[in-house]
Amino acid sequence: MLTELRDRESSLLRRLDPRTLLVSAAGAAFCFSAIRGLAPSCLCLAFGAALAALRGFPVLPLLKRLAAANVFVLFIWLTVPPTLPGEAVAVLGPLAWSREGVALAALITVKSNAILLSFLALLSGTSLPLVGCALERLRAPAKLAFLFLFTCRQIQVVGEEWQRLWTAAKLRGFVPRNSPHTYRTIGNLLGLLFVNAADRSRRMHEAMLLRGFEGRFHSATELKGSPADRRFALAFFAVLAGLLLLDRHPGAISWI
């Protein structure tokens, strides 16, 4: 699963075809990142929040998830405003936070949270293999679908391998400290992890070749679209088009 967020079982989004959800999520990401103004971006954020509400996520776990993801945004706030030239709004020693930098960081924050909310709402609960299968059916490049699926699987394999190595070290009394022994041990474990992972992926590739794999991944999963998918996609992309229009031609909205 993409996340362990529990959603409402009766949610409309749960019943949609993974292809619809994937195309919608990609459309949202493309549209939100293309928007330039802060006000339309705030509307995108509201739209993302509405999708999350439609999915029926509990508020607190959702906020915790957003907070974790916003650690990366914090770096933007620490680096962009002091480095972007412009009118200073705050000064701390040799560093001056520019108005333009703050505006840009705010824009990035709002847009990234809007994209995050949309992805959580649309793709949370869709298993990664199903996403890979949807990519294949959407005629995404075969290599992309294959890489996506196997990267997911390999990350899991590497994670399990790391757990095994770490447990083996701990069973022999290894306690990580700030010492050369700790760094050497962790270095050895990491080295072994990569060697084992490379060996494992080679053996997996051999297993695939032996079963007739010729570079194209085929999935046996059946996907079925429904009229609800078409209605959802139509409404969803109409909203995205409206947001883009509002951003590029604010006057058009007042005309409507």
Binding site: P129, R203, A207, M208, E214, S219
Partner: peptide, 27 residues
């Protein structure tokens, strides 16, 4: 080393799909 698909059914259908069987036939 041999099992890499997400589910047992997908794993078992992997070879037949590579043999050129249709999705339903492979399943």
């Amino acid at each position: 080393d041999q099992l890499f698909s997400a589910t047992v059914l997908e794993e078992t259908a992997f070879g037949p799909l590579n043999l050129g069987l249709r999705r339903r036939e492979a399943r």
